[in-house]
Nucleic acid binder design. Structure first.
Length: 427
RNA sequence: GCGGGCGUAGCUCAGCUGGUAGAGCUCUGGAUUGUGAUUCCAGUGGUCGAGGGUUCAAACCCCUUCGCUCGCCCCA
């Protein structure tokens, strides 16, 4: 016997789990489309070099990579943003910016598994490219919030924690840390909540900060008030814009959801401006989603600089959160008709009726098991069919079938032609 | 890399101090010749993850190993 388990860290989706996944995808897709985003996709396979970055992104070390028969180094995509950058760079001259695109790619990362993290997941991505100011952030955050609301999560359940990397950079500049070190330091600071202060200090010194710089940095990181920070820093562009964004969101009616949080950094080195995460207000989970502005990613691939904002929103954590909050939707199979022939004589007519009902748009299945009627009706019940169509020789002689309403448990003979013509409404 | 838990029927799991392998659900048949809630009766289904050891006797104790899972380290 071969191993029936899915590959470690990957999942199988049986039909009941697939219904849940489709429900989630449908939420993602419909809120995206309603907000004017267009869907795109790329192959799950990419050139490995697309993901090789400096500044020590952890994600680059977790690639599923291999060499194909032509000697190419290929990877399963660990995230979607580089592929999106590739698409945009192909057509920077012809695209009409800003563009608003979304995708729901399956992504892979080779890593140790814990709750909420698997080696494969589906990650909704939405990005606005070519919009340099904070209006893009506002639109992206509103899209995220509307998705959460569609899933039944309100401001009581979730919060958007937001920061701006320019604030952190301003602090580092104030401390005379050379700009070359900034992105490496930010990647380390992302670990602030996750490692001991001593370890963090050691890591910071390892990349080139002095003890006194580390000490002063920690003092700045205790600040929770934007205005207070502003008074102490020389370069306040990040603060000004973040205040502008918070003001925009307040006017739009979303201020309950937003909270400035200087500890939000994000692990990806390509972010340049706003960075954000959604979590429960007490941050009790792993972040449900996260993203930010990455104005220089495209230029690092050799194109010109193009402003961009986006996020990734995985399927695993949010489904865990919905399960814990008992907000899981009840999803049943949708089936309008089950056609049950009495014996082999009626198989042909069953197929014919099925076909005609389907051409009316109904969802139709047939039960050709030729089990006892008791059994077949039980199966029809389990399948969630609204109606059972019973084909008995007696009624068929008069061009009739028996239609049984499974919920009302009532049945009547009906002319086949009437059944077909009423199918549009019945379904 | 470190530590804990688990692995028994298709599924979810019980199994006491070592003494004939269990339940619920599912499935099959019947009470019901062409009718699904709930019933009721009967039945199918097991390499107890694998290998070795101790013992008169091992699902149970010991060793090895594989798999799953949770936590830590680490990290979207």
């Amino acid at each position: 016997m071969i191993d029936l388990q899915p590959v470690k860290g990957t999942r199988d989706f049986f039909p009941d789990e697939m219904r849940m996944r489709n429900w989630l995808f449908q939420v993602w897709r419909s809120v995206s489309e309603q907000a004017g985003f267009e869907e795109y996709d790329t192959c799950v396979l990419e050139h490995e070099e697309l993901y090789i970055r400096k500044a020590g992104d952890e994600i680059s070390k977790q690639l599923y990579s291999f060499e194909d028969k032509g000697g190419r180094r290929l990877s399963l995509r660990p995230e979607m943003t580089p592929s999106l950058a590739r698409l945009v760079l192909q057509r920077t001259k012809s695209l009409l910016f800003p563009i608003k695109w979304f995708s729901m790619p399956q992504c892979f990362r080779y890593e140790r598994m814990t709750k909420g993290r698997r080696r494969e997941h589906f990650q909704w991505n939405a990005d606005i490219i070519g919009q340099p100011d904070m209006v893009a952030e506002a639109e992206i955050l509103m899209l995220l919030i509307s998705a959460c609301e569609s899933m039944g999560l309100s401001a009581k359940d979730i919060r958007v924690f937001i920061n701006d990397r320019r604030i952190l950079n301003a602090i580092l500049s104030q401390l005379n840390v050379t700009e070359k070190l900034h992105s490496a330091i930010l990647v380390i600071m992302d670990k602030r909540d996750k490692v001991s202060p001593e370890t963090l200090g050691t890591m910071l010194k390892d990349v080139g900060m002095t003890s006194s710089q580390v000490q002063h940095l920690n003092e700045y990181l205790t600040k929770t008030n934007l205005q207070e920070l502003k008074e102490e820093l020389q370069h306040t562009e990040g603060i000004d814009e973040l205040q502008h964004l918070l003001q925009l969101m307040d006017t739009a009616g979303y201020s309950d959801y937003l909270q400035f949080d200087i500890s939000i950094v994000r692990g990806l080195s390509y972010y340049t401006g706003a960075v954000f995460e959604i979590n429960s207000p007490e941050k009790q989970h792993r972040a449900i989603c996260g993203g930010g502005r990455y104005d220089s990613l495209l230029s690092t691939y050799g194109g010109k600089s193009v402003p961009a904002v986006g996020f990734g929103f995985g399927d695993v954590v949010v489904l865990d959160v919905l399960r814990e909050l008992e907000r899981f939707p009840e999803l049943t199979r949708t089936l309008d008709y089950t056609i049950i022939p009495f014996d082999n004589e009626q198989v042909g007519i069953a197929l014919k009726i099925a076909n005609e009902l389907r051409s009316k748009g109904a969802i139709v299945d047939c039960n050709f098991s030729m089990k006892k009627m008791k059994k077949s009706l039980h199966e029809a019940n389990e399948s969630g069919a609204k109606f059972a169509i019973l084909l008995f020789p007696e009624e068929l002689k008069q061009e009739k079938v028996v239609i049984r309403d499974m919920q009302l448990r009532e049945q009547n003979p009906i002319n086949i032609t009437d059944l077909i013509s009423s199918a549009g409404q019945a379904a």
